[in-house]
Write a protein that binds this DNA or RNA. Structure first.
Lengths: 136, 136
DNA sequence: TCATCTATGTGCATGATGCATATAGCTGCA
DNA sequence: TGCAGCTATATGCATCATGCACATAGATGA
């Protein structure tokens, strides 16, 4: 019980990830070139979506939402083998959004480090030292 | 637009936090002594819930859920001034849960660092180098 | 022909969380 | 005396992110 996955809010298993982490990962993967959704599913493995894979429907829906928000633009690629692919590329707005995400994620990183620092006993909990007189 | 908060999934604003980060924070704050909910609201400011405060209802509901799961135990404190307080303390199960959370959060930390590393251009995206022949 | 892989997409359910609101005791002020 | 405000806990409702089941459809190979 509780080994990498939680007794999930989502039926069987749910990874403990950063909230909406999928969005900045897609933006980052799209930064260098045009990619289609199915290929992004593979690229996401690199960012913690390997052990806890994200569902394909979530990726496709997120891509359509990003396009609706002007962060990416898509075009159909009908040539080549297999069913047609929708190729996405990042827009200027999407690049700015990625930058904003990164700024937030650096803050998240600080918070996470502080939490682990306190857990490891290297820092006291502030409200405890300021309210020590209450119960000690 | 998009400055620390998102055009929210939640009406006005929603912080980009670690998923369910509230739970391990409460467990960590309860590790050292008995605390009541209202006091935990103040202690949470230390863990990134200062700029984007968590709603009190969320904290109280989480505490009841933790108690239902045997991770904390509560008792009423009727003495003292003000309305009665429900004092919570960590159980052994809760301590184990905290340890499991920390293990997961260290993984989250690795993923986050990798993301920022790639963003800063210090690492290539793996699926790009392995599939270069596709479009380049 | 039929299974399988690639590729995209919709419908539905659930969990996490914010907002509004309720209750109630206590404090202090006018 | 009454009322505002603080402490403290709690419920109802709405919304968003996400997983699961399922649908569609071309290509490939047995």
């Amino acid at each position: 019980m509780r080994s990498g996955r939680r007794r999930g809010p989502y039926g069987k298993a749910c990874p403990r990830r950063i909230g909406r982490f999928l969005e900045p990962c897609l933006l980052l993967l799209l930064r260098s070139r045009e990619v289609h959704g199915y290929e992004l599913l593979e690229g996401l493995r690199e960012f913690g979506f390997g052990e806890n894979p994200v569902d394909s429907s979530t990726v496709y829906r997120m891509l359509r939402a990003l396009e609706a928000g002007g962060q990416v633009i898509s075009r159909w690629e009908v040539e080549g083998s297999g069913p047609p692919r929708r190729l996405y590329r990042l827009t200027h707005v999407g690049g700015q959004s990625l930058n904003a995400w990164v700024a937030d994620l650096r803050e998240t990183d600080k918070v996470l480090h502080h939490f682990l620092h306190v857990y490891d006993g290297h820092a006291a909990i502030e409200y405890l030292s300021s309210k020590k007189e209450n119960s000690l």
